Amino acid sequence: MDSTGSELPTSAWKSEEDLIDALRRQDDDAYEYLVRAYSGRMLVVAKRFLGQDQDAQDAVQDAFLSAFKAIADFEGNSKLSTWLHRIVVNACLMKLRTRKRKPEKPVEDLLPHFVNDGHRDRVEPAWAVTFDTAVQSRETRDLVRDQIEQLPETYRTVLLLRDIEQLSTDETASRLNMSVSAVKTRLHRARQALKTLLDPHMNDGY
């Protein structure tokens, strides 16, 4: 579920390199085009992390300001969309660090429980489809996104970085200032909790 999106239309500049050169020259038309061409997909990313509020808009604005300041140092080793994606994710993480955190539902409420003999206290429902097949449906993708939003923020963020934004474990740990082992543990618990949330919707009657 990569979110970098499609590339630069050829109608504005002959190539992405031409656009980057114009940005480095501080060309106002290039700045305006960059915002028009990429703000939509960047806002989608921001809303995943921050929700449907003003914080998402602010994160996109912060990301563009950071990109304009850093464009002279952009070496072109990745596509412009990939570079902007990294920047907006960083802006979202910064917002999450600075805003007042709402009380979270304990993730333990969403994790499997075990009885004394080591077995789970309930039989997990069988899904009518596999997860990979399910996410090919737009309706089911929307359901998955809705249930991800129900996860506690600290677990949702790790799951978004690893499974949705497709960062590596090492990069996720670096972005969150966590150890690799802590990221792996939190991701495992986030996936378990997400499955619990999805189970009622994905059984044989789905």
Score class of each variant (00 low, 15 high):
D132C: 05
D132L: 13
D132S: 15
T133N: 13
T133K: 14
T133M: 13
T133E: 15
A134S: 07
A134R: 04
A134N: 03
A134W: 01
V135W: 04
V135K: 03
Q136I: 12
Q136H: 14
Q136V: 10
S137M: 01
S137C: 07
S137D: 08
R138L: 03
R138T: 09
E139T: 12
E139N: 09
E139V: 11
T140A: 14
T140Q: 07
T140S: 09
T140K: 09
R141W: 04
R141M: 07
R141F: 04
R141S: 02
D142N: 10
D142R: 07
D142K: 05
V144E: 02
V144N: 02
V144D: 04
V144W: 01
V144I: 09
V144Q: 00
R145Q: 11
R145N: 10
R145S: 12
D146Y: 08
D146V: 12
D146N: 12
Q147F: 07
Q147L: 11
Q147P: 08
Q147E: 11
Q147A: 05
I148F: 00
E149M: 08
E149L: 06
E149Q: 14
E149D: 14
Q150F: 07
L151S: 00
L151G: 03
L151A: 04
L151Y: 05
P152Y: 06
P152D: 05
P152G: 00
E153R: 10
E153F: 00
E153W: 05
E153L: 09
T154P: 02
T154L: 01
T154M: 02
T154A: 06
T154H: 02
T154S: 08
Y155V: 03
Y155L: 00
Y155M: 04
R156N: 13
R156Y: 10
R156K: 15
R156T: 12
R156L: 13
R156E: 13
R156H: 14
T157I: 07
T157Y: 04
V158F: 05
L159R: 13
L159M: 14
L159K: 12
L159N: 12
L159D: 08
L159S: 11
L159Q: 12
L160A: 01
L161S: 05
L161I: 10
L161A: 11
L161R: 08
L161F: 11
R162N: 09
R162H: 09
D163P: 09
D163W: 11
I164Y: 12
I164D: 10
I164M: 09
I164F: 08
I164A: 05
E165H: 10
E165S: 01
